[in-house]
Design a protein around this nucleic acid. Sequence first.
DNA 1: TTGTATGCGTTATCAG
DNA 2: CTGATAACGCATACAA
Lengths: 341, 341
Amino acid sequence: MNTGVNLKELAAELKLSPSTVSRALNDSYEISEATKKKVISMAEKLNYQPNPFARSLRENKSKTIAVVIPERMSSFFSKVVDGIEEITQQYGYHLLVYSTHEDVDREKKIVNLLMNGRADAIIMSVSSQTSDISHLTRLHERGFPLVFFDRICSDIPTTKFITNDYESGFEGTKHLIQQGCRKIAFLMLSKELSITKDRYRGYLDALKQAGLSPEPQLNITCCQEEEENIESIRKLLDGPNRPDGILSSVEKLALATYHAVKRTHLRIPNDIKIISFFSNLSIASLLNPSLTTITQPAFNIGEECAKLLMKKLTKPRQPDLPNQVITIPSNITIRSSTIVV
Amino acid sequence: MNTGVNLKELAAELKLSPSTVSRALNDSYEISEATKKKVISMAEKLNYQPNPFARSLRENKSKTIAVVIPERMSSFFSKVVDGIEEITQQYGYHLLVYSTHEDVDREKKIVNLLMNGRADAIIMSVSSQTSDISHLTRLHERGFPLVFFDRICSDIPTTKFITNDYESGFEGTKHLIQQGCRKIAFLMLSKELSITKDRYRGYLDALKQAGLSPEPQLNITCCQEEEENIESIRKLLDGPNRPDGILSSVEKLALATYHAVKRTHLRIPNDIKIISFFSNLSIASLLNPSLTTITQPAFNIGEECAKLLMKKLTKPRQPDLPNQVITIPSNITIRSSTIVV
DNA sequence: TTGTATGCGTTATCAG
DNA sequence: CTGATAACGCATACAA
């Protein structure tokens, strides 16, 4: 739908050849300042816009990054994408954003679609259902630049950005123990997720250090149906083996927990204390009682992913993305959900 | 970074001409079933992926829609984008998503960037700062398909999707009046926004119908700084002309109001009742007290925008998008923030 | 039914 | 310093 002039027409108007005009606009050293000026002013006058597809075809790059996230309605992922955009925009890159809705099949379709080169790189966080990663391996083996954040694939040798999941899980659990909890539940989206594993290890080690033994019944694996999750948690709370503390490994399960607690006679923090990985600080302090949070540096994670990619994509002959995990620490903010006054 | 085979190579492998292969893959009627089968299976075997840019250049369309929203961290906009994606994905379209961060200058830059044809259409909701709309007029005058939702530009003759803003403002205000409110404040992001105007008209008419006179001091125009907004609202609440009801025209200002109330000695709903346009139902019922909401059909609005565009873009010789406003109604859910028990 | 030739709009190579 | 020409990968008009 680009109805504007093209290079040839612009050149005709200037009585110059297309190649000269192209070089002038690209600020080539072989063009005189005089003609550069003429060309640029005429281009502005006619509002010349280079056709991005011709350019992409020619240069074999799209100036586009694909971002693949499990869900849009999440303050964490929203902030990460904001962080990515903040950087990529400065380099004139565009963002294709896809949500997998936590569905591996959709994730596979999206990733396979992306193999055709529509984007120059992918920044992604895998779905909670993802265990078979062949679609991602294939992508990476083809040399496609791929960066993971938060929910990463350890087996794929590329750069990953995470927060200090283990330590945060450890410290969060330790905080609950210090507040008197002895039976601490762990809420997760899926056992497969990297964040689940790391946060859970931290949880286990904190229990161990305190001489507490983990109880399998206190590990709740949730699903995509909010109502179902609320009921799972409510049953735990109403059951014979009621926990006195909860560590939620993701934001939405903390909200589900609040809903579940409302359906019981329990009081937070007196009967049950709650801490959660949580990005929406404004909401955390409005919850009743306000929620003790482990805040992931979402925006910053997005920025770092993008900076790394911009460096790789905009400089000539960059090496492959190194196989390393970069950790940006979270902050624990203690609020009323874990402190009895 | 498309390292796969191209049409020519695929054709060579098959000992056919590129054009035959192209036609076979595009299911042309002039190709025999036998060769179609052969071509398709070889294409799969070699994992042939057509180059999207060559195709875009040739066909002068990108199979890409640009979505421009004022902010990502909003349940309303997240759901709209989800709704858009739900439809466009079925048609094999991709989504470029841009956030203006409520900044006209960024909005202008994005829109101007989009004029080069990188996307086949734009779905957008304008920033709260947008009053000069020349960038959008120019786009539309060039024949670029443009659809507005929620925060629309009435002056641009294209299709717009909104909720029943006037009625919802009216009914919301009426509800407050029925609950005994006599001094009702109206919170908005900006006087320029279409949603502000319509919701405000509804508010005014409801006051009028009840014989109440509007008071300019009860209209609060907010900004992008949450803390500043909270303080503006707190001052209103602590001031001599304290309202007994609040109609918030956007989600984030309802949250700011809850923060503000926490800084006063007032109680919701006894001293002040609150109703708000609000999309995040899970949060609404967790707030303390739970928030009476006017829920916009966000996902549905996204779907409708996308359906309209898909129809226009995928069928040959479609007329221009008609100049009309399509309204999808909101639902009011009464919760504790407006009902004294 | 299949093959040949052309052009989409750019940039790069090569000549002048 | 500037111009002519080719090529990127694909789809189509035209030819066979």
